[in-house]
Design a protein around this nucleic acid. Structure first.
Lengths: 233, 233
DNA sequence: CCATGTGAAGTTCTTCACAGCT
DNA sequence: AGCTGTGAAGAACTTCACATGG
């Protein structure tokens, strides 16, 4: 029997995790996945000094239909002004609140190879709201070196590292054959949000959320479309 | 008016590009996005020497429901054996054919900063069926250096580089504010499959396929779920 | 008998179209 | 007069459950 996780990855809409009893009346997964896009567009608009925006303009910048954008926003309340549009700053604050952008989340990196390091550096420099609190690896040549303010420690002591740093989210950047074991250890230690960068699927228990990012798979999807182009160029 | 692209990114199912007239009777986008997962699982099984597999086992390894797996496969024909299961090798060949895995696709990297380089190295070493034919950047300190067999050239000569190397897929790893311009140049030069790694949305014309990978956005989606956990740990 | 392949039902997501507010 | 917010319709996707074939 397959797991009951919200294992994501590109596109697959994924069945909801569990009809979360109370809370904000179950916001659709599809909506949630678009919120970061809206946030980014709104931030860019605020930086440009745009005070007010219509759903059509916001939607175009986010590459969605205007009606979809309006419905997405409607889940959080009614922040628009009819006949006018949305106040950029108000929307940013409201969405940011719902997305939890006010709080800084701590990350742990599992597997500090070249890709893991590049991604970690990229994240702390570009994404606000996240900080790296630990990084582990199995390679003795890497252990002890520095990465954006963290000393890379031995993956053998993963449990202790987690206990000491209490990361909320783990970035799994190990080779594929070690990813599941790393996930198991992380989950056992209490980490319940995993970003899987390894080219494999992860099975985790209920309550744990996994999202997967896999560039090779994205390329294969593009390859599929290339293979099915009718009018060859 | 929003574009008519298959701009992807995590999850959003995306409306089909255009009811492609003929072809294999329009395979659902959701199915296509799962094919690489199946391929990977099947390859692992073949490596383990497994000859035959039931849909239930394959589905569990791929983290989907068995019925969904069977329906996905049914789009390509009927390769299973009732009462038995699927022949791993046969399935691999058939899916591989449809996904275009027999052909090697050529890639061009736009933006050879540390992240772009790490991703390009990662891809050529881990994903079969892709080769890097060109890499460009705007930084004079990077231009002229080597990357997995390619000399990084000046992005100012992008058109000429494309004409000389005829890449089928472009990896856009520029800063966000240069991504749209790079995409425009690529499309104008005939590239019709883009993998966008820059933290921004891209608008392209019809017939061009864009898929986006954005780790910061994935983290924000995890952050949303963290912010909405009821029983705090 | 057993597992596939698939109608039919069910669920989730998107789009339409317009009433209602500013 | 114009744009939001949303009921209702539509489309896409998934799951159920079983007839079918090996």
């Amino acid at each position: 029997m397959a797991n009951s996780t919200l294992e994501s990855s590109a596109e697959p809409p994924i069945t909801a995790p569990a009809p979360t009893a109370i809370s904000p009346a179950a916001i659709p997964a599809a909506t949630i996945s678009r919120l970061p896009v809206y946030m980014r567009v709104l931030l860019a608009m605020e930086a440009e000094g745009i005070a007010t925006v219509r759903s059509e303009a916001l939607a175009e910048a986010a590459n969605v239909q205007a009606a979809l954008l309006r419905r997405d926003l409607s889940w959080f309340g009614t922040y628009g002004i009819r006949g006018v549009g949305y106040d950029v700053t108000v929307l940013l604050r409201e969405i940011g609140q719902h997305i939890g952008a006010e709080r800084t989340l701590s990350l742990i990196l599992i597997g500090a190879g070249s890709l893991g390091q590049a991604l970690a550096r990229h994240l702390v420099s570009s994404a606000r709201g996240f900080k790296l609190v630990a990084a582990v690896d199995v390679d003795p040549r890497i252990i002890g070196t520095e990465l954006v303010g963290c000393t890379i420690t031995n993956q053998a002591n993963l449990e202790a590292t987690i206990a000491a740093t209490a990361p909320e989210i783990a970035l799994i950047a190990t080779p594929a054959d070690q990813a599941q074991q790393a996930a198991d250890t992380l989950v056992a230690a209490g980490v319940r949000s995993l970003l899987n960068l390894a080219p494999t699927t992860l099975n985790v228990g209920p309550g744990v959320i996994v999202r997967s990012v896999d560039i090779a798979q994205e390329l294969q999807i593009l390859a599929f479309h290339e293979a099915h182009r009718e009018g060859g160029r």
